[in-house]
Design a protein around this nucleic acid. Sequence first.
DNA 1: CTGAAAGCGCTTACAG
DNA 2: CTGAAAGCGCTTACAG
Lengths: 367, 367
Amino acid sequence: MPRSKQAKSARAATLSDVGREAGVSAMAASVVLNGASTSSRISPETRDRILAAAARLQYRVNVAARALANRRMNTVGIATVFEGGELLNAYFLEVFNGILEAATRLEQNTTVFTLHDWHRDAARLPGMCDGRIDGLILIAPTLTRAAAKVLPVHTPFVAIHANVPLPNVVNIESDEEQGAYDMVRHLIAQGHRRILHVAGVKGMVGAERRKRGYKRALASAHVPVDNSLIIPAGFTEDSGRQAMRGWLREHAGEPLPHAVFCVSDGAAIGSLEALAEVGLHVPTDISVAGFDDTLAARTTVPQLTTVRQPLRAMGNRLVEVLLDRIQRQNAGDSGLTEKSIVFPVDLVPRASVGAPPAVRRIVPAPR
Amino acid sequence: MPRSKQAKSARAATLSDVGREAGVSAMAASVVLNGASTSSRISPETRDRILAAAARLQYRVNVAARALANRRMNTVGIATVFEGGELLNAYFLEVFNGILEAATRLEQNTTVFTLHDWHRDAARLPGMCDGRIDGLILIAPTLTRAAAKVLPVHTPFVAIHANVPLPNVVNIESDEEQGAYDMVRHLIAQGHRRILHVAGVKGMVGAERRKRGYKRALASAHVPVDNSLIIPAGFTEDSGRQAMRGWLREHAGEPLPHAVFCVSDGAAIGSLEALAEVGLHVPTDISVAGFDDTLAARTTVPQLTTVRQPLRAMGNRLVEVLLDRIQRQNAGDSGLTEKSIVFPVDLVPRASVGAPPAVRRIVPAPR
DNA sequence: CTGAAAGCGCTTACAG
DNA sequence: CTGAAAGCGCTTACAG
């Protein structure tokens, strides 16, 4: 393959270079190469000549110039807290992966802004919304409604797993309540009745939904809800460990629950550790279930039965919805077509859930 | 707080808006607000007037216009393969976090390009290097030297954990050999002598370095290297599991090694599983050590003794080095000041390494 | 100490 | 079907 004579040129070729090379105007080159939205058409021969010239000159559009002319950066911002330990990292990665997929497909760049925490850094959001991005994706924001008011009106926003409805922001979420419901029905179907719920922080939307699913599943199977079996913890491994340790200490000598349904994989992993500390074996002595299907769920021993949200697909949708809003806004139509989009979830059965010991003794083994 | 009368303006304020408001030229505003590099100075009063006007108008620089004028995007690209499972994800996240830290500090944007695999997508690299980024970071590239030749000369590159020296690319790595050496010395210090090495793929730079450290440590303690104790595997959990299963099968009835030093945490986790399958208990029957300190290293039972690379600091350095190169190149100085930068590593002792059983019987228990 | 002018590379009306 | 002109918002020499 012969080396182009232009390959060593210090300056990248511009549209007028291409135009000159092809014997046409820069504008004609713009139409052919960058699909500039003019009504005029170029004849096939001219078109070919321009394409050939561009290839020869290795023409590549200068995105800064295009952005300046279009008042459009073709860049979406991603605002996220990054320091939340494993759980958040695994969650972020899946969503981010989905975002990148869609961004690549739709020819958008991405810019990541990291926050220390949502509460403290809400004031930084407006500063991210000028010049360099066309719209902003909020990853699991926990904003007060007051803080949400400072979001600039010119910039379209979308969120995933927002803790409260944010004005003028489309929120993407999954049916967490249904996931919890399905999981607890799954436990019940295995023969479990006394099911402990290691719950999340009170007031957090996700935690409340999961607790509601737990209660609804018990009710649907006519298992009375025993509030002493609902223990407050949190989403982290640490909070799960503390909560489970505390429960085991306070209830020493009492009958063990058949199963533990944890608000998150993190809490489930902490619970696994606390159970291991007192010599209990999962799932033969007690079953444990998590929620989220983080990467860590597959690295525990035994692997964790959990609920999967289609985070990657949700990440894809974030970009699609945001771009739609950007285009709408540029066209002067700034209305919100939808407030939230809910994705279905899947149960992921793994080794951490088995039959309860009592049932095991009664039920005959499968042939 | 009274709302600014400009807050609802459809168009963002420009430098000439600010200039008009302050009664000066756009250029004066540029000097004060964006630190334009002109030799002239502005009087303190004018300066204050400009600053006040900018605040009133909520002026924010248009980065596209600046980029066009400066021929500089203030954006660094990050090229990475993303689909490598847990190990790569955890690795990427740490490095990425470090990159974002430094990018934020140095006022650079970041753009992530994902590749399916390095071999197939090497041809896409030049296309990433035009217009939108000033330089490119390669995350753990595995390029042939031939492929590296197609890297455009105008764009500065830096790499982390490159598999081969790439022409005109600064590579950031860590002292993996020393890490392996330290780990094996640690095992020896605990009393282990027969130490199995679950090794990585032959020819991979990292794998070879770790193996070299293993051998050097044995030699330094006058433990003869037994090549039958070095088994080829890979970095993944699966390859570790297969390798350890195979070894146990082939050596049934023979004395167990005292300890296993695995090329990676993934391989170590696979080894843990294979050992558990045959009823061996870690660390009382046999010790296991990994390498990398991935997130998974903390979720195994027992937690994994491993070696940590300072990935976040390395990510920081990637940006610093790249920016330095970009600035140098713009100043006409395109020479490489260094070929590679080596970071030290740390031993992370956890529960998967204990004293060998034989020693345990002889040595008195600690009081 | 400050300003008017030119130019970065693109796109979009507007003419022919 | 094609082109000349103006403008996006910034910065950098160059004058005063």
